[in-house]
Amino acid sequence: MIERDLVIVGAGPGGMGAAISAHENGVKDIFLLERDQYLGGILNQCIHTGFGIDYFKEVLTGPEYADRFIKKINAIPEIEISARSFVTHLTKDKVLTYFKPGKIETVKAKCLIMATGCREKTREMTHIAGTRPSGIFSAGLAQKLINIEGLLPGNEVVIVGSGDIGLIMARRFTLEGAKVKAVIEIQDKTRGLLRNVVQCVTDFDIPLYFNHKILKIFGKDRVTGVSVAKVDSCMREVAGTEFKIDCDTVLISVGLIPENELIEMAGVRIDKKTNCPVSDETNKTSIPGLFVCGNAFKVYDLADSVSKDSELAGKLAAEYLRSAG
């Protein structure tokens, strides 16, 4: 079996930043696995500005932010990139199995950094009653459809949850000609950044309902509407406040969960509530030499924070390899 000094899974800002930092700290053999055909991770679909203000002191879009790292990585011969490589298995000895078009490969890592990012929470996790028609999307999926595939998933949209992705998609749908009828937030304030409320919702006069929740989704084949009601401080529905909004699309934007099934498979201790590795030190896990960085370690609001976190991961990996000899 081929053994590599450092294997990194995921080429979002986390994995790319870790690879660059590991190289800067002296690691000479770095193998970067990414399931997509492009590097950049979630940044590629985040075409809005709001990246790099901290890290580069510049206002960049997601793809521009990614581009800075991609250029650096491509200029480092010691980093070997394997794209279209989907890691499906991981053992406690850091043996990885991955699929590439037409083949299955295994590789053993002396040191491993997992930078697999997050996935979105789904409707099933938010307990909305009603039918199961088409037209219900997670906000990030809708973002991918619009920004990468060029498909508009609906014309009249209600967004559940006021996280950043939901707010950003409210503007995106509006700019693409759809009507965003409401953003519904159960809490008394936004879960996202205030700047996104201003530039994505207020700018376009989109109604934003705080202390409200979706009771039910209607529709047989396609969504036809939702019912909404006010909630009290215990999140209970207030009688008599229910109203209906007609729409053909519902976006769910209720948060992210770290993607850590592979390290769980390898026996890393995971906090079942957050799906983060149990750890008292950033990037470390219960298995020595197996590090986790970026959104897989902890849900960061900003890519800039992921970049800082990943610098540390690269450094820790280099230290581990040095001490392991």
């Binding site: 075409i47 500005t49 206002v59 793809p63 920004n147």
Partner: peptide, 27 residues
Amino acid sequence: RILTATILTKGFPLKLLPVRTDRPIPK
């Protein structure tokens, strides 16, 4: 505001090219 959007590509594997204005334009 700075405006961000995408444009369709022709003859490339990437369907859309993300674009933006290089400075803010009137709302």
